[in-house]
Simulated assay, not measured.
Amino acid sequence: MKSIANSRVLPKQQLMLMFILILLSLSGCENKSMDKGVSQVNSPVVAVVSGKEIHDIDIDYEILSMPESMRHLMQDEEARAKILHVMIQREAVAQKAKAMGLDRDPLVQHRIHQAQNSVLIQSIRDWQQQDVAVFNDAQIQAYYDKHMDDFKIPEQIHVRHILLSDKQKALEVLKMLKRKPDSFSALAAQFSIDDSNKGRGGDLNWFARGTMVKPFEDVAFALSEKRRISQPVKTKFGWHIIEWLGKKEGNTPSVDDVKDEVTSILRKKALDTWIKQLMDEADISVLKAEYQIKK
């Protein structure tokens, strides 16, 4: 069969550990919140590592490169001090790598080039989405009206099942179920050969048509409040006894409900169009015939 958190405030020590781990692993991250035109010129030097200056604003940049949930550390002096010491460690290690000549290794140079490109690509995506791909309500409504079917939420049902290896075994379990209608979960845990869900009583959760194999799905969607338990139904996986637990009617959300989703779609389309235009205008030559893409 096809496969079918509560938030809390972290203690300060855990937050410190988290951002130190993030800093140690950072190698050019997305940064959407950095102010334009900000530079090191007027920012005081806070550390020097073998002649390399680290400015106070460099700490700001590190924090702006972290997840937004950690931006509050910008004003936390203890956090800034710890970040600085991680930056010092990274700078010292990087300088040692250069002194060893590792930056001249062709593979390392390729990785540096790729990392630089990744940062530049993300920067141009941010620029394109923030400064170019801005859509008004009329454009969002027009796209929604034209693609309304894409946003429809189909009818869904909630069922659980007991999967048996043969029909005779399925009939025996069905008899047990008829004697004790409330024993479905226990019988699934005891007899079902579907290890992916027997531990939760065979529960397959909510799903729409097209999710499960057709013989199973046809029977499952034919069940209802009046006829909750199926006869054994055969699929390529074995024999199923299905119990109907509930149904959600299909619906179409309003444009306001999917406004963010539509905006994301329009932004992606605008970016794809922009990149295609860029590729069309670029001077590109593939010099080896075997690397030409066949159309």
Rank of each mutant, 00 (worst) to 15 (best):
M1L: 12
K2D: 09
S3D: 09
I4T: 12
A5T: 12
A5D: 11
K12H: 07
S25Y: 08
L26C: 05
C29K: 11
E30Y: 15
N31Q: 14
K32D: 07
D35H: 08
D35F: 12
V38K: 04
V38N: 00
N42P: 08
V45F: 07
V46A: 04
V48G: 04
V48P: 00
D56Q: 12
D58L: 09
Y61A: 12
Y61G: 04
E62P: 02
I63N: 02
S65A: 07
S65N: 15
M70G: 02
Q75A: 09
Q75Y: 09
Q75L: 06
E77M: 04
R80H: 09
R80Y: 08
R80E: 03
A81H: 13
V86C: 10
V86I: 11
I88K: 00
I88M: 03
Q89M: 14
Q89L: 14
A92G: 05
A92K: 04
V93I: 15
A94M: 14
A97M: 09
K98R: 14
G101F: 06
D103A: 01
R104P: 03
P106N: 02
P106E: 07
P106W: 11
P106G: 02
L107I: 08
Q109N: 05
H110F: 15
R111L: 14
H113K: 15
Q114E: 01
Q114T: 06
Q116C: 13
I121G: 05
I121N: 10
W127H: 12
W127I: 07
D131V: 05
V132A: 05
N136S: 06
D137P: 00
Q139L: 07
Q139R: 13
Y143I: 08
Y143W: 01
Y144S: 00
K146D: 07
K146C: 06
K146A: 11
K152T: 10
K152Y: 08
I153G: 12
I153C: 04
I153H: 07
Q156P: 02
I157S: 03
H158T: 10
R160M: 06
R160L: 13
I162N: 00
L164T: 00
S165V: 14
S165P: 14
S165T: 14
K167S: 09
K169F: 03
A170T: 00
E172L: 00
K175W: 02
S185D: 06
S185C: 08
A188E: 00
A188R: 00
S192Q: 05
S196I: 10
N197G: 06
K198W: 07
G199T: 03
F207M: 05
V213F: 04
F216A: 14
D218M: 10
A220W: 00
F221C: 03
L223Q: 01
L223C: 02
R227F: 07
R228V: 12
K234I: 01
T235W: 10
H240L: 13
H240P: 15
W244H: 06
W244I: 02
L245F: 06
G246M: 12
T252H: 04
K259E: 09
K259V: 08
T263A: 10
I265H: 07
K268T: 03
K268G: 03
L271V: 01
L271P: 00
D272E: 15
T273N: 12
Q277T: 15
L278K: 14
L278V: 14
M279K: 03
D280A: 15
D283M: 09
D283Q: 11
I284L: 02
S285G: 10
S285C: 06
V286M: 10
L287V: 15
L287T: 13
Q292F: 15
Q292H: 14
I293Q: 14
